[in-house]
Design a protein around this nucleic acid. Structure first.
Lengths: 175, 175
DNA sequence: TTTGAAAGCACGGTGTC
DNA sequence: GACACCGTGCTTTCAAA
């Protein structure tokens, strides 16, 4: 069966789903659930990593528990002359920027920013606004999360989503 | 020493930083780096989990590799009579909603949505707009990411941030 | 399948309150 | 004495060839 080299089959789906829920699950444990030997599971995991499906294994941390208590989204409007791509350099420079992307709509880009408090956020915002190609910004402070503060927050998180076995809310999985 | 029960010391900081980079690191490996025995490391990790600092260990997955190729943010405007809190129920119902939060500004809430394609997204948007208390929505499609598609995406992710050892871009850590 | 490594657990030791 | 923390030795389980 599967002589045609299936890129991503049902077994892979289950394995990925399990690793999203618990990245420290042993190969043997995964194997008993999906009906494979530990060795076979390892081979598949290695392949999934090599193919870029699984990009890493990381601990999920509650930002607030570590002092990151302020969160905001910033719409960035750039000079018509400067490409929003230049924001990538800025985003890499500031660790407070958890995500940066170009978007449709009036703004050129959207930044997801984390800071320890409002004072810290103001300082970060000031630095961004001082970038030469930034014309204007609009900030939206996050007041409270309506979902189990998942990965979106920046950390990957628990939250037993509900898309088959995998969960977009958790790890953006289709499965 | 440390009789006063330190909530989060330098050792914890290092351990968390290592686990964010690699959730599958062995306790012994962590121990040699931070200068502790494997047993001591395990005890601290157990404590960090119990205290809710570490919320889990998860595999990071590239959403596009699994078919989630469309991403958007949706501003939601609610009826003045209905509290945006009711969005929490909606958010839990739809696995496509990766994050939902109340925000400052004109909108009542901001949703982070993932879908397989534009057609899928349209369908999700339609369901959200049909919720009785939703008055209006404005969608911002994500065109491209300017950072290594980190956790923000929904999955927790790599992206070698640069805040001391921990990285907000990665796991929103203060450390 | 086999061999070395890691996890898990009970014990004993030490310093502070 | 009552924690809270660490380390060692042992057994079971797992990973890697």
């Amino acid at each position: 069966m599967t002589a045609k080299r299936t890129p991503f089959d049902e077994l892979d789906r289950k394995i990925v789903a399990m690793l999203i829920e618990n990245a420290r699950a042993s190969f043997a444990e995964i194997g008993t659930v999906v009906g494979l030997s530990a060795t076979a599971v390892k081979r598949r995991v290695d392949r999934l990593r090599k193919d870029g499906v699984i990009t890493g294994f990381r601990a999920s941390v509650r930002p607030a528990a570590l002092g990151w208590r302020t969160e905001a989204y910033i719409e960035v409007y750039c000079d018509s002359a400067a490409p929003p791509r230049r924001l990538a350099e800025v985003a890499r420079k500031y660790p407070e920027i958890a995500a940066a992307m170009t978007v449709t709509g009036a703004a050129d880009a959207l930044l997801h920013v984390r800071a320890t408090d409002v004072g810290h956020f103001e300082e970060v915002l000031e630095r961004i606004r001082n970038e030469p190609f930034v014309r204007k910004t609009i900030s939206y402070m996050v007041l409270s999360h309506l979902l189990p503060e998942s990965p979106e927050a920046g950390a990957s998180e628990s939250a037993p989503g509900a898309y088959a076995d995998g969960l977009p809310g958790d790890a953006a999985i289709m499965l």
